[in-house]
Simulated scan of single mutants.
Amino acid sequence: MTSNAASAQLLAIARDIAVRASEFALEARRAGVSVAATKSTPTDIVTAVDRDTEAFIRSLILEARPDDGIVGEEGAARVGTTGLDWVVDPIDGTVNFLYGIPSWSVSIAVAEQAGPRRIEGSTLAGVVVNPVTGELFEASLGGGARSSGRPLAVNTGVPLGQALVATGFGYASEVRREQAEVLLGVLPEVRDIRRMGSAALDLASLAGGRVDALYERGLNAWDHAAGGLIAREAGARVGGVRGGREDVELLVATAPDLYDAFAALLRASGVDA
């Protein structure tokens, strides 16, 4: 198990890289952006800035930690020898990025034994930056979560009917249809729904009390590695299908006192059918 001091050192590296990558991506956005390719569907896009930013991040990681592994959204995984993997989403919220909507982020985490679908060990450090607003959210394992030096804490004491819930949707039409059916069961039972377009920022928002709960299917490890640690260190309970660990099948996160009621609502609405 990595010590708190070692996690703090990893966080310092992650913070520096995330800030530099955010400046890189924001400058590229100001210069103009267009779709470079599509991935799973025509609406699942990648821009040249996604690829260039990830390449920039990879170069900085290898400069600082040449023996670690790297799991990134846009590039092939790099197998390391230390047991630590950097989990990178160079631009989380690419559609927002493309359209100029100021809700996208750079997400960088360090974890034990990470793959694209899930993280097997502990996440040790994580940083999420919104380059447009300049907000930086960060956490280290056992070290708490902060934004601009301010400690973060999830909202507690919120009943299910008053919970503001964040979620997201997939790119394939059939997946969206299934997600819409789940939403029909959830929406009448909570305060309202927010769909902001960046899972990393959704988790950071939960940590900062801007939403009370979130759920989403189809998230890869790079979507939630940093944000999940930030939420946990802010007091959230984070899980997956039938009480298991969060992975590509499902991520659920709320304050501990809301989790069971919210998870029951999701099951009743068919989220893990």
Results as ranks from 00 to 15, higher is better:
residue 223 D to N: 15
residue 49 V to G: 03
residue 166 A to T: 04
residue 190 V to E: 07
residue 71 V to R: 08
residue 28 A to R: 15
residue 169 F to W: 12
residue 202 D to M: 14
residue 27 E to V: 09
residue 187 L to K: 13
residue 192 D to F: 01
residue 153 A to Y: 00
residue 159 P to W: 00
residue 26 L to G: 08
residue 58 R to V: 13
residue 54 E to M: 06
residue 190 V to K: 09
residue 249 E to M: 04
residue 271 V to W: 08
residue 56 F to V: 05
residue 81 T to A: 13
residue 66 P to A: 05
residue 211 V to P: 01
residue 65 R to V: 13
residue 138 E to G: 04
residue 239 G to D: 05
residue 14 A to M: 02
residue 115 G to Q: 03
residue 207 A to E: 08
residue 148 S to L: 09
residue 215 Y to A: 06
residue 4 N to A: 14
residue 180 A to P: 00
residue 160 L to D: 11
residue 61 I to Y: 07
residue 227 G to Y: 02
residue 109 A to K: 04
residue 195 R to I: 15
residue 258 L to T: 10
residue 110 V to H: 06
residue 82 T to M: 11
residue 262 F to S: 10
residue 112 E to K: 02
residue 82 T to R: 07
residue 257 D to P: 02
residue 162 Q to T: 06
residue 192 D to A: 15
residue 101 I to L: 13
residue 273 A to M: 10
residue 72 G to N: 08
residue 67 D to H: 15
residue 255 A to D: 08
residue 268 A to N: 14
residue 102 P to V: 10
residue 190 V to S: 10
residue 54 E to W: 05
residue 215 Y to H: 09
residue 82 T to C: 08
residue 153 A to N: 02
residue 62 L to H: 12
residue 179 Q to G: 02
residue 1 M to V: 11
residue 5 A to C: 00
residue 11 L to P: 01
residue 163 A to Y: 02
residue 64 A to P: 08
residue 232 R to W: 01
residue 98 L to V: 09
residue 34 S to C: 00
residue 24 F to D: 11
residue 153 A to F: 00
residue 79 V to R: 14
residue 28 A to E: 13
residue 257 D to K: 02
residue 15 R to P: 00
residue 78 R to C: 03
residue 249 E to L: 11
residue 48 A to I: 04
residue 272 D to H: 13
residue 42 P to N: 13
residue 271 V to N: 07
residue 239 G to M: 05
residue 208 G to P: 00
residue 136 L to N: 01
residue 44 D to A: 13
residue 185 G to N: 09
residue 26 L to Y: 14
residue 45 I to R: 14
residue 132 V to N: 06
residue 36 A to R: 08
residue 54 E to H: 10
residue 206 L to C: 08
residue 112 E to Y: 03
residue 101 I to C: 02
residue 158 V to Q: 01
residue 130 N to P: 01
residue 166 A to P: 00
residue 129 V to F: 04
residue 96 N to E: 09
residue 77 A to I: 11
residue 120 E to A: 15
residue 158 V to L: 01
residue 233 E to K: 04
residue 266 L to D: 09
residue 83 G to M: 04
residue 267 R to W: 03
residue 220 N to V: 03
residue 75 G to F: 14
residue 235 G to A: 09
residue 16 D to H: 12
residue 78 R to F: 11
residue 44 D to L: 05
residue 24 F to N: 13
residue 106 V to Y: 07
residue 16 D to Q: 15
residue 220 N to M: 15
residue 34 S to P: 00
residue 201 L to W: 06
residue 200 A to N: 07
residue 188 P to D: 10
residue 228 G to W: 00
residue 191 R to S: 15
residue 154 V to L: 02
residue 271 V to G: 11
residue 171 Y to M: 07
residue 11 L to K: 03
residue 138 E to N: 07
residue 159 P to T: 04
residue 194 R to S: 12
residue 238 V to P: 06
residue 62 L to Q: 15
residue 92 D to Q: 11
residue 138 E to Q: 12
residue 87 V to K: 04
residue 253 A to H: 06
residue 114 A to M: 03
residue 80 G to N: 07
residue 81 T to F: 00
residue 167 T to L: 14
residue 172 A to S: 12
residue 43 T to C: 01
residue 163 A to D: 06
residue 184 L to M: 14
residue 190 V to L: 06
residue 140 S to Q: 01
residue 24 F to G: 02
residue 214 L to K: 05
residue 270 G to W: 10
residue 22 S to D: 12
residue 228 G to Q: 03
residue 166 A to Q: 10
residue 193 I to H: 06
residue 267 R to L: 12
